[in-house]
């Protein structure tokens, strides 16, 4: 009920607050990251990389049903794909010390093709569960496979830049389900991201290349695509990548728990695997404790040898990248 003194006073909805906060944070992040991309890359990964993986694990655990029922095949293919593709990726990564090149180029192409085929299979299985027309997924998957074969290095680089956007897509699907009044506001937030990226490019395009005298600096620039796009200042490449990654962390750590109470870390009773009579509470608790331990281990590793820990982290991070796809496809 409105009080007398509230009548005539402009009301500010939570959706408006979301837009204001999101755009303000992006503006601040764009300025700071654009000015100090290397430093912010180091800091954001140190602080948020492990924690955001923990939050993703927690979110996926809350979405995983205890009994798979009609989705048994879907989840089986999903989990098998994550395990097999992650194992193959790690084998290739550590065998070559360089993801795409040297002797592993055809193995890498095979991995890319398997990855795309796996996503196609998930789309197909999901399509069988819904009444919607999913026929477009087959040509899309084939087209992506053709692109991956035609230009494997750019394909891999595109994954680096597209991965942060997956978190934003997750949030969009989640808002549709649990916070629909934020949907329009969130779309405005999403529309602001390319504007900030363009502003970063306009503001920092003239900057000289970042120093690459240390292995860490070289790795950061290489990860952002400096060697594949030598005509572009790696200052803006690194800044763009860190900017998108920061939004990605922001989404997983703050926004998704805000719109989905089941993603709040300490509400374990909302996790079916933990609270259901048919669940696996001890195994889930063990995984959770292990995950928390890995977060602390990462912090310790970053403190002792940042460069090596960063390399190891990004190698194993492919697991969480892959795990996102089945849950995202399931939400479509």
């Amino acid at each position: 009920m409105l009080r007398a003194e509230d009548i005539g006073r402009p009301t500010v909805s939570s959706a408006t607050v979301l837009v204001f906060a999101f755009v303000s944070c992006c503006a601040l992040a764009a300025v700071v990251i654009g000015s100090f991309p290397l430093q912010l890359s180091i800091v954001t990964i140190f602080l948020f990389a492990g924690v955001h993986n923990l939050m993703e694990f927690r979110y996926f655990a809350a979405r995983m049903p205890v009994r798979w029922g009609k989705s048994r095949v879907f989840y089986s293919v999903a989990i098998a794909g994550v395990v097999a593709l992650t194992s193959a990726y790690l084998a290739l990564y550590f065998a070559n010390d360089n993801w795409l090149w040297d002797s592993g180029v055809y193995l890498s192409l095979a991995w890319n093709t398997s990855f795309i085929a796996w996503i196609g299979a998930l789309f197909y299985l999901r399509g069988k569960q819904t009444s919607r027309d999913w026929g477009w997924a087959v040509p899309l998957v084939l087209f992506l496979a053709a692109a991956a074969w035609a230009s494997p290095q750019y394909w891999s680089l595109s994954l680096v830049y597209l991965h942060p956007l997956i978190a934003m897509w997750f949030l969009e699907r989640q808002i549709r389900r649990t916070k629909r009044e934020w949907l329009r506001a969130y779309h405005v937030c999403l529309a602001s991201i390319p504007v900030f990226v363009i502003l970063i490019w306009l503001a920092f395009a003239g900057r000289a290349n970042l120093p690459d005298e240390t292995r860490l600096f070289w790795r950061i620039a290489q990860h952002a695509g400096s060697e594949m796009l030598p005509g572009i200042s790696n200052h803006i490449l690194v800044a763009t990548h860190v900017f998108l990654e920061s939004i990605h962390y922001f989404v997983w750590l703050l926004l998704i728990p805000l719109v989905d109470r089941r993603a709040i870390p300490w509400r374990l009773n909302d996790v079916p695997m933990f609270s259901s009579a048919n669940g696996i509470p001890k195994i889930f608790a063990a995984f959770l404790v292990l995950s928390v331990g890995i977060v602390f281990l990462l912090w310790f590793g970053f403190a002792v040898d940042y460069t090596t820990t960063r390399d190891i982290y990004f190698a194993f991070a492919i697991g969480h990248v892959l795990a996102e796809f089945p849950f995202l496809i399931k939400m479509l």
């Binding site: 026929g135 040509p139 084939l142 087209f143 496979a145 074969w149």
Partner: peptide, 9 residues
């Protein structure tokens, strides 16, 4: 792959 993609599309 591109040819098959066009066919399916």
């Amino acid at each position: 792959l591109l040819s098959v993609a066009f066919i399916f599309a």
